[in-house]
Write a protein that binds this DNA or RNA. Structure first.
Lengths: 207, 207
DNA sequence: AGTTTTCGAAACGCGACCGTTGCGTATCGT
DNA sequence: ACGATACGCAACGGTCGCGTTTCGAAAACT
């Protein structure tokens, strides 16, 4: 908790509703693509229908507000069904796809991709809190696939992850009004990745 | 050319040096991760060692300055060697990798990934000028591979492109002081993509 | 009832940047 | 030489957001 100080519960208690409105406004604006640099406390206050005082009483600065707001995003990667590697990979990519369609969740990628350089502290905490757990879950699916023999024993897991996740991010970032992410993209990505691009007459006759 | 007007060559001619300094400063700042919104004419002028007047005399607004600056980035994709699909793919990814290490060239991805929503005009022109030609070149390599029989006839070319380019962008965006892009990433990416992840005892024994 | 704390709102002085204008100087064509 | 234009620089009035302060009202405690 980066909150500046708990008030000794003597007088009027802090409004839960105001706090939620502030965090919501913050997340929404970041989700819409507003940079942390551009994010103004005044705009957050106005959007949340709250006085600036109410914000400054809780957070010392903008970065703390953003950190705490992002921390409220609990987006657990689901335990993979575990039927097979293909199903698990598709499931995870599908999570990414569906999340990307909600404005709120876009702030995850927006922060991760845009703010790393300028707010290293924010990025580091965000990386530990959100990014790494997800990478690890994804990594485990691939490792398990190697262990079960579904995937090549010499598969470069990190590179494989980059390909699938990178392709997904690529599409979601490029997506927009005119360029929606196809519903079946996760399946198509996983299938192409599993089969490989090369034409091999001894094997690829169709699945 | 978005330049506001050519002066009738009567008096003192406009300084080539100043113009170059302005464009250089603009590109450098964008390459460093400064948003177009954040980019201030004052900062550009100061960095270029130039008066604001000199900028406003040439460009009507910030967006025009950015458009013209980006247009000076002539970054032709090389004609691929054409030895085989693998070599061509590695070559193109290698171009992306090496470009990403130069600050100046980072403004390509920065603009493409961060400014699409807020500056649709800028993004559209940039897309036509830089992005689409490169996508098309990349696409041709894959199509040629299908035509020569090196790649599967039913390969989903768009998905394949997303995987390779997306993975590369993913790494370059994530890269930084502590996270350099491995030199051999292009090769590793292409090899994993061509082979596929799946373990197939009838085929994968090594290359 | 009285105390304490928070609430939203408004205003403060401060600094950054806007786009414009005027200044004295430099550099071109005629 | 002379007029025209561009140069860098400094200043203008204006807007925006900063972080702080003050205000009267509201909501909890003893």
């Amino acid at each position: 908790m980066t909150t500046i100080q708990e008030s000794a519960g003597r007088g009027r208690p802090r409004s839960e509703r105001a706090e939620k409105a502030i965090v919501d406004a913050t997340l929404d604006m970041i989700g819409e693509g507003v940079t942390v640099s551009e994010l103004s406390i005044e705009a957050v206050a106005s959007r949340a229908g709250v006085g600036k005082t109410t914000i400054y009483r809780r957070w010392a600065n903008k970065e703390d507000l953003v950190v705490d707001s992002l921390a409220t995003l609990r987006l657990p990667m689901p335990e993979p069904g575990g039927a097979d590697v293909r199903a698990d990979l598709v499931e995870y990519l599908e999570v990414m796809r569906s999340e990307s369609s909600e404005l709120r969740n876009r702030c995850i990628t927006n922060i991760a991709l845009n703010e790393a350089d300028r707010f290293p502290d924010l990025y580091r905490r965000f990386r530990e809190l959100v990014i790494e757990p997800r990478r690890e879950a994804f990594r485990q699916v691939l490792r398990r696939g190697v262990a079960t023999g579904e995937l090549r024993p010499d598969l470069d897991v990190e590179v494989a992850m980059s390909m699938l996740v990178g392709a997904m991010l690529f599409h979601t970032k490029m997506s927009g009004p005119g360029y929606p992410v196809p519903d079946d993209l996760p399946e198509r990505l996983v299938d192409e990745a599993l089969r490989g691009f090369r034409y091999d007459v001894t094997r690829n006759v169709a699945s």
